[in-house]
Structures are given as C-alpha cells and as structure tokens.
Simulated scan of single mutants.
Amino acid sequence: MELDNWLRTYLAYLSDERRVSRNTVQSYLGDLSDMIGYLEKLGIDRSNELKAHHLTAYLNVLRQEGRSNATIARRTVSIRSFCKYLVLQRAVDYDPAILLEAPKAEKKPPRTVRASELDKLLEMPDTSEDIGLRDRAMLEVLYASGLRVSELVSLDVEHIRLDMGFLLCLGTGGRERMVPVGSAGTAWVSRYLEVARPRLARDDKRESALFLNHLGARLSRQGFWKTLKKYADQSGLVVTPHTLRHSFASHLLENGADIRAVQEMLGHVAPASTQAYLPTVKPKLMEIHERNHPRAGAKRID
C-alpha cells in the first residue's frame, strides 16, 4: 500500500528531522496504522484517493465504538499532522484533514476529600516531635487557606499575621492576596513558631522561611510532597496538595460561601477557574436552599 509507505517515511521524518521523542512516534504509529487499516477496508490504498469524508467517517466509527473524547482528539491531531506531511510532499492536491474538528476534552470536576477524612489526615503527624508539629501546622495552613504548594513553601515568618488570623501570599504573576488562616491554623502555627521552629532553625536568625526542613533551611516543594504522601499513605487516603486546595474551595462553597470570595482566596484571575467547583457542590447548595429559603417549600402552581 502506498499509504503504508508514506507512513513509514513520515515516522522517519518525525524522528530524524523533527527530533520527536520515541514515545510520541510510537503514538503516531498506533493512531495512523489504525486509520490506514480502516481505509484499506474501504479499498483506499493511495494518498490521492484520500478524501475529507473518509476521515470524518473514520472518526465517527471511533465514536460509535465508544472511544473517549481524549482518544478521538489525539487521533485527530495525528491525522492532521500526517495529512500536512502529505501536502508538504505533494502526495495530495489538498489537505483532506483541514476541516477536521477535534472534540472538546471532557472536563472532570476537581477531586475532593470529605471534611471528616481530612480531619483524619490532619491528625496523623506526631506533634510531640518538632517535625511532626511543623507538619501539622503546614497541613492546617494548606487546608485552611487553599494555597498552592509553591505558595506555601514560599511563605516567610513575616507573612503570617497571627493577631489577625491572615497570611500574606505572593501568588502567580506577583499578585499579593490576603488569605484567612482560621482559628485552628492560627493556633497550630503559633505553637510551631513558639516550640518547634526555633529548634529547627538552630538559632539561625537569618533564615526567613516559615517552614523549615531538618537542616534548618526552607522546605522545598518536593519535601512537602514527600511529607504529604507519607501521611496520606498512613491514613489510607489518596491525597495530593491540589486535592487539599480543591477540598478547601468545595467545602467553602458547599457551606454557602460567596463564589467571588472563594475566587479571591484561591488567587484565580478568571471566574471560570472557580466555577469549575460548582458541579461538585450543586447538590449541597440545593439542600441549603431547601432548608433555608422561605419560599423553597411553597406549593407549586398548577
């Protein structure tokens, strides 16, 4: 088949001239071999016989087979790239894939953890030890504030305003925001600053970082990830730093918080980023409305 020959030269072109990774080349090979196998069944084995409706029909077959949008989108990208190569090599008179549209990616709601499960996670550190006290304070702050890990480990001592129950966060793009820490977070950070941090700092007055590692230096992102994974494994939960951030937002919205206030606390520039949490909290919001709105139980009009 001529199309098989073109596929081989295309994959060599990707590997040798475009320096595409081996895994990506293998992905293109799988996608395009499947398409060419479909075309062969239609009796199409030459590039100049390839038409737009053949490609559309192939993608429709994938949909009928129940393939995911992500798979179909990837196949569409592979087909477009291959057809552009055929145009470049003048194997076709026009690009048959130019009007192909990839399906939109399926947006899954953020994964969250119930408040009762997070209570279990927060109680895992041994607070009789300096590192355990630090870990409890970190976890409390992360869940109470919804910070990103990079923002958490970037905090300095001066960024925590214990008397106000707030912290000052320097977010993406250099934007500053004030975020509540809450009474529990404030209490644990206060205890950490009084008891554990001075010993971890080893009397080094120059280190400004709030959360320190066992060497007395600023804790890294990787260090926090390892710490969280240890406690998640011990508690039997599947939790990442972003799970805590998602849970922070969802739990606030579930309990009636204003979405603009949550957007501000998360440091989202676009409202759409915060609105992604709404599908996870809609049932709870309906329950709150039914329980509290004076007209929620009114009789329907026939």
Rank of each mutant, 00 (worst) to 15 (best):
M1E: 09
L3G: 02
L3P: 00
N5K: 10
N5G: 11
R8C: 04
T9R: 15
T9C: 09
L11C: 01
A12W: 00
L14N: 11
R19K: 06
R19A: 08
V20A: 11
N23R: 11
V25K: 02
L32A: 13
S33P: 06
M35C: 14
G37I: 06
K41N: 13
I44C: 04
D45V: 13
R46Q: 09
R46L: 03
S47C: 15
E49A: 07
K51Y: 01
A52N: 11
H53T: 14
H53V: 14
H54M: 14
T56G: 11
L59K: 11
L59Y: 10
R63F: 12
R74K: 08
R75E: 13
T76G: 12
R80A: 10
F82W: 13
K84I: 01
Y85G: 03
L88T: 04
Q89M: 15
Q89R: 14
R90I: 00
R90E: 15
V92D: 04
V92S: 05
D95A: 05
P96I: 06
A97N: 03
A97Y: 01
A97P: 02
I98S: 13
L99V: 06
P103R: 00
K104F: 01
E106N: 05
V113W: 00
E117D: 15
L118M: 14
L121T: 07
E123S: 13
P125S: 06
P125L: 11
L133W: 00
R134G: 05
A137C: 06
L139N: 01
L142C: 00
A144G: 15
L147Y: 03
L147S: 03
V149P: 01
S150F: 00
S154P: 04
L155S: 05
D156C: 09
V157P: 03
I160H: 01
R161I: 09
C169F: 09
E176F: 05
R177E: 00
M178D: 06
A184V: 14
G185E: 12
W188Q: 04
V189D: 10
Y192C: 02
L193V: 07
L193C: 05
L193A: 07
E194Q: 15
V195I: 15
V195S: 10
E207M: 05
E207W: 01
S208N: 11
S208E: 15
A209T: 09
A209H: 07
F211N: 03
H214V: 13
L215V: 04
G216L: 13
L219E: 08
W225R: 07
L228D: 06
A232C: 14
V238C: 13
P241S: 12
P241M: 10
H242K: 08
T243Q: 07
F248Y: 08
S250L: 09
L253M: 13
E254S: 07
A261M: 14
A261Q: 11
V262Y: 08
Q263W: 01
E264Y: 11
M265A: 12
H268C: 04
H268R: 07
T274L: 11
A276Y: 08
M286P: 01
M286N: 10
E287T: 02
P294T: 08
G297I: 00
A298Y: 09
